[in-house]
Nucleic acid binder design. Structure first.
Length: 255
DNA sequence: TAGGCCATCTGGTCCT
DNA sequence: AGGACCAGATGGCCTA
């Protein structure tokens, strides 16, 4: 039961142990025996089960030695345990996959996000991207609307007037930022300032509210863009959005 | 040392 | 019946 021992400061929630391999089955058996050997409650349950009711698959050595049959309850229990272990490992793999696409400082010296933090940040990240997309859509429609107006005006007015310059998207950034107040912290270094422990929302450049605050009000992102420290500004106007979050991650974290 | 986080086991419930 | 999913219990590791 020492799955943590193999990990370093960034603990791996998905041990490399292949749970279905014979070695791991052996390991699981060993763990199981140790588990059933040194836990009094389990012992008590085992004795209860040995008593008479073999209905429970609760297993344990003393009892199992007696009724080792073809449908060995111990084997059944081990099988169930193995399945559950595999299920949890799959879940952790998915969680790792989620961590990989999160704009969060990663590296050997940075402890990885906890599960709850990963989920909360993922939610906020999605909200931020949605907000970013909406704003970009709005801006594009504004720009094209103005452009269409100017075209129609040119048809009416004599062409002698100064040509209306096509405003580059970037030039509109300040006005957008006045609409949606920003906290530009993108010039600050990230990893160097990142605390070695307790990776929380602060890594995303949020005001780093306590976890319970984030859970209560995870919508605090919707009021405007947040800028990740050490990252290019993620908003669609300061910086063209990378094609994928993987690119964003690559830009910012420099694995 | 307390608290957070995690892996694992276990029994119950639901679904196919 | 068997498998997936879930929640509670337990113990280990790590950090403040």
């Amino acid at each position: 039961m020492d799955s943590d021992a193999a990990s370093t400061c960034s603990r791996s929630s998905s041990p490399d142990l292949a749970v279905d391999s014979p070695a791991s089955v052996f390991f699981a058996n060993k763990m199981f025996q140790a588990y059933s050997g040194d836990r009094e409650s389990v012992h008590l349950r085992a004795e209860k089960n040995c008593d008479r009711s073999h209905s429970s698959a609760s297993v344990l050595k003393g009892c199992a030695e007696v009724d080792l049959s073809k449908d060995d309850p111990q084997d059944l229990r081990l099988k169930v345990n193995s399945r559950e272990r595999k299920r949890m490992h799959d879940l952790n793999q998915a969680m790792d996959g989620l961590r990989e696409v999160m704009p969060y400082a990663q590296g050997p010296s940075v402890r990885k996000l906890s599960k709850i933090s990963t989920l909360l940040l993922a939610r906020n990240y999605i909200l931020m991207l949605s907000s970013s997309l909406d704003e970009m859509k709005k801006l594009v429609s504004d720009v094209y609307g103005a452009s269409a107006q100017s075209h129609s005006a040119r048809r009416v007015l004599p062409p002698a007037s100064a040509p209306v310059p096509q405003l580059p998207l970037l030039s509109l950034t300040p006005s957008l930022h006045t609409v949606a107040p920003l906290r530009h912290t993108s010039t600050q270094p990230t990893v160097a300032h990142a605390p070695r422990s307790s990776p929380t929302a602060g890594y995303l450049g949020f005001p780093a509210p306590p976890l319970h605050t984030m859970m209560k009000d995870p919508l605090h992102l919707s009021s405007g863009y947040r800028h990740f420290p050490g990252m290019p500004c993620p908003c669609s106007l300061c910086q063209p959005l990378p094609a994928s979050t993987g690119c964003l991650h690559g830009l910012s974290m420099g694995k």
